[in-house]
Design a protein around this nucleic acid. Structure first.
Lengths: 172, 172
DNA sequence: GCATTATACTTGCAAAGTGCAAGCATCATG
DNA sequence: CATGATGCTTGCACTTTGCAAGTATAATGC
């Protein structure tokens, strides 16, 4: 534990207050945004969250494999497979075969899928614009870099698991 | 992507790329943090996410009612009731009755609950410290205000529902 | 006072989601 | 061409969630 002398360096908070705890605050924002959007694509198109994410992924990378998609939208192979099934059943995507290796799926978005995506994306962008509008210019400029760092750090945390964290946690 | 021109208006992004879309990025960070912590309190204490949140809430506001807790940690009454049941079953909290109105529950944390909370909180704070350590001083200073604004904006978005957003979304 | 309505929380059950073992088809290797 | 690896899918048990209905208590109206 690094204790710095003169200035208040990275605050070494000693108690955890839920409402002030960074992971909780991030979770709340993410959840509050996700719910109305999920209500929209759920009611309107019968899509699950996985379905929407995969649709966005193939809208961007048409012809991707299931593994590609899993990487692009942080879903495990089971969730990807089921989400694809949903998209195919709804007529928003088609399963094809990549030429060389016939094990890998080639996911193609249909015209209907593209229209559906555009409709959800419009709402999604409206939400993003709305959120960004509450920030100052300076905040908007710093947001991207901060999120990048947080993504990287949280990815590392997840990778290492809680046992690694238990080391650096002060003994209770 | 970020273009500094003469017109510094909020960028009107026209396409949605999942990996660059603010709600998705927030979700990923929140999920990547939540998973290892949930694995910890799940394996070690048999707590669910709701259980952990409620435990944190009563550690901070001992003697709160179920409704208070719901407000404090963004859970609906059903989830609160079940979470409390879990905490009581694990011996981490007790259900009592508030004097005046015997409908409202008075949730008290037990000594065991407090020790459990301290142990999880230690990990939680280690995670937070870890995350904050990747940011610059300036970023850390602006983070709190930004999260406050995002919390407020996302709360409003959820309150209004998707129908309100559909108005301001560009027609697809 | 006593019926009616409202509040605070709980319970039960069905639907949806998740995790994981096992399966199938295909490809790569010795 | 047998063996094992890979990419994806399916089945099944388990958990979580959403919601209707239930219980107990309090407040309100007549």
């Amino acid at each position: 534990m690094a204790r710095s002398s003169a200035r208040p360096k990275p605050r070494p908070q000693t108690e955890l207050r839920l409402g002030a705890w960074l992971p909780y605050r991030l979770f709340i924002v993410a959840a509050q945004i996700a719910r109305p959007l999920a209500a929209f694509y759920g009611e309107r198109f019968g899509l699950s969250q996985a379905g929407w994410r995969i649709l966005a992924a193939i809208a961007e990378h048409d012809g991707a494999s299931a593994a590609d998609i899993g990487r692009a939208c942080a879903l495990d192979p089971f969730a990807v497979s089921r989400g694809i099934g949903q998209l195919v059943a709804l007529g928003l995507a088609t399963r094809g075969s990549a030429g060389r290796d016939r094990r890998v799926a080639r996911l193609r978005i249909t015209p209907r899928g593209r229209r559906t995506f555009a409709e959800i994306a419009a709402l999604g962008l409206a939400i993003e614009t709305d959120l960004l509008a509450t920030l100052t210019d300076a905040e908007r400029r710093s947001l991207d870099g901060m999120l990048g760092k947080l993504e990287h750090a949280s990815s590392r945390i997840e990778q290492n698991g809680w046992r690694a964290l238990a080391q650096q946690a002060p003994r209770p």
